[in-house]
Nucleic acid binder design. Structure first.
Length: 480
RNA sequence: GCUCCCAUCGUCUAGCCCGGUCUAGGACAUCGCCUUUUCACGGCGGUAACUGGGGUUCGAAUCCCCAUGGGAGUACCA
């Protein structure tokens, strides 16, 4: 049987970092098993669900490179539709089946009655389970008649008095004792199904074989197990992965910082880096590698290497991972990315391919983010101002420095080319050393100050051939 | 409250299922050194953990129990 897994987000906001990780795990698992990855939209929460969020989440998934084989915009006729609100007839059909078999019952209790039951039960130290009269068989005919007459009623699942066991791929054997949950609603009075029910109906009708999801669903799984049983269907294999939490060990939320995927896109993280980091948060590579693309692990990914405790989501390592990915890209790849993100009017675009290659080669050693490259270029290469910090001030006090500045200034006025070559730089350097008798630190730092107007920066032999002579002239004029 | 899940360096984790090879390995961060006559990148090294208590065993990070701590669920939310 072919593996079919799904990611089933609710379109109630942007794609969350935790959701992205779940999607990724499912995608990886599907790839590893040669299976199908499905996107299903769980939009039964009418209050919070919005169609634009669905589009936004899909956009984020695409950005991450998490592609799906089936989904709202890629339907397989056998399983469509993929939005729960478009599958209402399916849920109604299965619910009717459960009613017919007396495995579920109509409930006419009002919110007030339910609330009263709950408070009474709690006051008496009992679990707040449903205790309404409608679960009793003797009211069945009355209930059926009232529904037939057009009255609206919720449908509750009649919970069997037995315990259930789950063989979870991460948690192992999980035992749900008798009476853990009371009769729960599967269909609201307005005809819209409730999560634990429609999730099962969908997974059954979509032939889902494996469910990888957050462990916040672990307690709920017993309800789903009951429904599978009532429907006479075999449950899929479950793997409940631990949750992502904030630095205060609380559930990850907005106050922990950037928890939406789109923010990382905006901040120019590489999608591959985010995927890499997210994968690491709860899964470990069999060879303990920590830098990889999802394609690289898609053949070895499996559920047996999930960790079973929650992980603190922390940006520091993510930044490092991003830098590692940046350095793994070829210069050509980086250049085309830069071309797309740097404004067309920028000097970068008018440089030669050789210049761009050397520039990227130089800058990628200095930054963790692509977005840092242009500012760095503007400072180090095109910046005409000085950086008058303590280091530069110090260099300027040396008695040798003015001599170097004078010499370089004179030489520059003779240069007609746009750039100084490394060879020319060497000639100047040799002259300063031999004819001016300056060597060692005063030589190199003096040259640096004269040519760059700053006290530190990349190796001069790489930096200067990239810097327009006009820029160097402007800098040196401010020093002299 | 009740039910379930979890517990290794500051952080992510390996090891745990199949006890000895663990004076507990890797990565991030941090500190130091080397390289670079600067900065970064890179290299090398240091600091740093089996929550506590019982038990089983010749031997426990690994198995069992209890405690503590954390998390989740307990909705006509998902």
């Amino acid at each position: 049987m072919t593996v079919r897994v799904r990611f089933a987000p609710s379109p109630t906001g942007y794609l969350h970092i935790g959701g992205a990780r779940t999607a990724l795990y499912n995608w990886l698992f599907a790839k590893a098993k040669g299976g199908t990855f499905i996107l299903r939209i769980e939009d039964t929460d009418l209050e919070r669900s919005k169609r634009e969020y669905e589009a936004l989440q899909i956009e984020d998934l695409k950005w991450l490179g998490i592609t799906y084989d089936e989904g709202p915009d890629r339907p397989n006729p056998k399983y469509a539709p993929y939005r729960q609100m478009e599958r209402l007839d399916i849920y109604a059909r299965f619910a009717q089946e459960l009613i017919d078999k007396d495995l579920a019952f109509y409930d006419f209790c009002t919110d007030e009655e339910l609330e009263a039951m709950r408070t009474k039960a709690e006051a008496e130290g009992r679990d707040p389970h449903y205790e309404g009269k409608w679960r009793e068989t003797k009211y069945r005919d009355e209930a059926l008649a009232r529904v037939k007459a057009g009255e609206k009623a919720a449908i509750r699942f009649r919970v069997p008095a037995k315990s259930y066991t789950l063989q979870d791929q991460v948690k192992g054997e999980v035992i749900y004792p008798v009476g853990m949950v009371g009769d729960f609603v599967i269909m609201r009075a307005n005809g819209i199904p409730v999560y634990n029910y429609c999730c099962v109906v969908d997974d059954v009708t979509m032939d889902i074989t494996h469910v990888i999801r957050g462990e916040d669903h672990l307690s709920n799984t017993v309800r789903q197990l009951m429904i599978y049983e009532a429907l006479g269907k075999k449950p899929p294999v479950f793997a409940h992965v631990s949750l992502l939490i904030g630095s205060d060990r609380q559930k990850l939320s907005k106050r922990h910082g950037a928890t939406s995927v789109h923010l990382y896109k905006d901040e120019n993280y590489f999608p591959e880096a985010l995927c890499n980091y997210l994968t690491l948060l709860g899964w470990s590579h069999p060879e303990e590698k920590d830098i990889f693309t999802k394609e690289e692990i898609s053949s070895i990914f499996d559920t047996d290497r999930f960790s079973n405790h929650s992980a603190i989501y922390d940006l520091v390592k993510l930044k490092w991972v991003n830098g590692q990915h940046l350095r793994k890209f070829s210069n050509g790849e980086l250049i085309s990315m830069l071309k797309a993100m740097i404004p067309a009017s920028h000097l970068f675009h008018s440089q030669t391919p050789e210049w761009m290659d050397k520039c990227v080669e130089l800058l990628k050693q200095k930054v963790d983010f692509l977005s840092e490259m242009q500012p760095m270029m503007d400072q180090l290469i095109f910046g005409e101002g000085l950086e008058l910090d303590d280091e530069l001030r110090d260099i300027l006090t040396w008695e040798t420095t003015p001599k170097i500045i004078k010499f370089i200034g004179d030489e520059l006025s003779k240069v007609s080319e746009s750039f100084v070559t490394e060879a020319q730089l060497n000639v100047w350097s040799d002259f300063v050393k031999k004819d001016l008798g300056i060597k060692g630190k005063p030589l190199f730092m003096g040259l640096r100050a004269a040519l760059t107007g700053r006290g530190h920066g990349p190796d001069l032999k790489f930096l200067i051939p990239l810097t327009p002579v006009s820029v160097i002239k402007k800098r040196i004029s401010q020093l002299g």
